[in-house]
Design a protein around this nucleic acid. Structure first.
Length: 496
DNA sequence: ATAGGGTTAG
């Protein structure tokens, strides 16, 4: 899943910044500072500080304010030294949580003459913002200032376009490039794979001169995501056995879902062993979490829970807890899921919406209706989590399975219309069918027809209810209605 | 001094 998009206000500021010569505050400078050795020292110090703490927002901001107050811009400091600091600042911002700061800094410093490093970092900012608009503006700027044939800049351009899903533009830049390196190829391949263009991605993968572990991981991840676990696993084997490339932690994370889809317990075990050998399992909690999930999905809840128990409390994060709860849920072990949840609360870990979804799912599958309702209450009141449509779907499924149809219907009717979907009514209709409640089945079918007139499956389900309780006349009438609307039953599939 | 792949979900 893509990370949530952040909005970029005032993009015109960037373009504006180019046209005027200097930001107004600089005009107030009345004198130039002497080029003291202390200042030179300070510059170097700030750069190395940033390089050491490149992921710390606080450090970045402190260096930034030092930079502003130091008067470097009015000094006789060598501009290349200043630019190094500015570029490093831009890089830190672009990688951090507030990439917009990079664009603003750039805009405020338009009297500097920037280099290709600057534009590389700025483009990464756009990628992190998922802002195709600022990406396009920067592309234009890059052409204007003449850095359009620098490999790093072009690769960053391909990256921005690929991240934003503008694959035509990405391919265009890619094809125009006079020289490409491995990173360029990897960016293009993973961009295409990420957006589901597997064949194209694969053909580039096959074409590229040298494939690194990143290339392999990107294409494997593509196959996994596109639900082609066999190809994913066969590529993984080829990478390890024939190419002699060592899988990285990310390679393992990419292959786990494929293992899960296939339910390949043996492979899961050998990847587990490999991770153990490389020390991944103990250094990377994500690997452990994925392993727990995969073991459960391969049907081995024992291994999942053993692995969970063997992981120290220190290392367990929210995902670890959520994973074990969802593991128990998929094995119908409601009690165990509840116990895990309670233990989680005891150690002070705060559940999120996914945790509650897994927990409610466990209650639903384990037939723990009262408990499920209690947890819903807890979610609302103790944690102030607003249920989304999946929570509702789970709860209605839970009530419906238990035959508490009136409560289920009441809950369905209380779902905000903005999030209500037809899956909810289908879930309830399934319960009506199971419990032979014709009256409610009719009402619910009406709701479904309102929302989706073209889909035939529900007519059939409804007519099965009628037929099932001996109302052949009505069943006949419904089928005729279907014929009239030229509806035919399509093979069932879940939309959830 | 630069860039690429990442865990949980009815």
């Amino acid at each position: 899943m893509l990370r949530s998009r952040r909005r970029v206000p005032h993009l015109h500021l960037i373009a504006k910044g180019l046209s005027c010569s200097c930001s107004s505050s600089l005009h107030h400078a009345t004198h130039l500072w002497p080029n003291t050795p202390q200042q030179q020292q300070l510059l170097k110090h700030l750069v190395s500080l940033l390089q050491k703490h490149s992921s710390s927002r606080q450090a970045t901001q402190q260096v930034h304010s030092h930079f502003i107050t130091s008067g470097f811009l009015h000094s006789h400091q060598s501009t290349s030294h200043i630019l190094l600091l500015v570029n490093t600042l831009l890089r830190c911002y672009s990688l951090g949580q507030f990439p917009l700061e990079a664009l603003l800094l750039y805009k405020n410093l338009n009297c500097l003459s920037f280099d290709s490093f600057t534009y590389t970092f700025l483009l990464h900012t756009c990628a992190n913002l998922h802002s195709i608009f600022s990406g396009l503006q920067l592309h234009a700027l890059v052409v204007k200032v003449g850095f359009q044939s620098q490999v790093y800049v072009q690769t960053a351009l391909v990256y921005v376009y690929a991240v934003c899903g503008s694959l035509h533009e990405a391919m265009h830049v890619f094809h125009e490039m006079p020289e490409r390196n491995t990173v360029t190829w990897n960016v293009m391949i993973s961009g295409l794979a990420k957006w589901g263009h597997l064949q194209l991605s694969r053909s580039l993968f096959d074409q590229m001169p040298t494939r690194t572990v990143v290339s392999w991981t990107a294409i494997i991840d593509g196959y996994t995501r596109m639900n082609q676990p066999v190809e994913a696993l066969s590529l993984f084997r080829r990478m390890v056995i024939y190419e002699g490339i060592k899988p990285s932690e990310m390679s393992l994370l990419a292959i786990f879902p494929a293992i899960s889809i296939m339910g390949a317990l043996k492979i899961c075990q050998s990847v587990h062993a490999y991770g153990e050998k490389r020390g991944f399992n103990t250094s990377n909690i994500r690997i452990t979490n994925s392993l727990i999930d995969s073991y459960a999905k391969c049907g081995c809840i024992k291994s999942a829970s053993t692995l969970f128990e063997d992981t120290s409390a220190q290392r367990k994060n929210l995902v670890s807890w959520t994973s074990i709860i969802s593991s128990f849920a998929m094995h119908g072990m409601g009690k165990e899921a509840m116990e895990s949840f309670e233990r989680m609360e005891e150690v002070g870990m705060k559940p999120n919406r996914v945790t509650f979804l897994s927990l409610l799912n466990a209650c639903s599958h384990g037939g723990l209706v009262e408990e499920g309702l209690k947890f819903l209450n807890k979610m609302l009141n103790s944690y102030q989590i607003v249920p989304d449509i999946k929570h509702y779907g789970c709860l209605i499924d839970m009530l419906g399975r238990a035959g508490r149809l009136e409560e289920a219907e009441k809950m369905a009717l209380g779902i905000p219309v903005e999030i209500l979907n037809v899956v909810i009514w289908r879930t309830l209709l399934g319960a009506c069918s199971f419990h032979d409640n014709v009256e409610m089945g009719e009402r619910v079918t009406g709701k479904i027809l309102e929302m989706e007139r073209e889909y035939g499956g529900d007519y059939v389900l409804m007519s099965n209810i009628f037929a099932g309780v001996g109302m052949f006349v009505d069943a006949e009438r419904l089928r005729k209605l279907m014929d009239k609307r030229k509806i035919f039953k399509v093979p069932g599939h879940s939309l959830v």
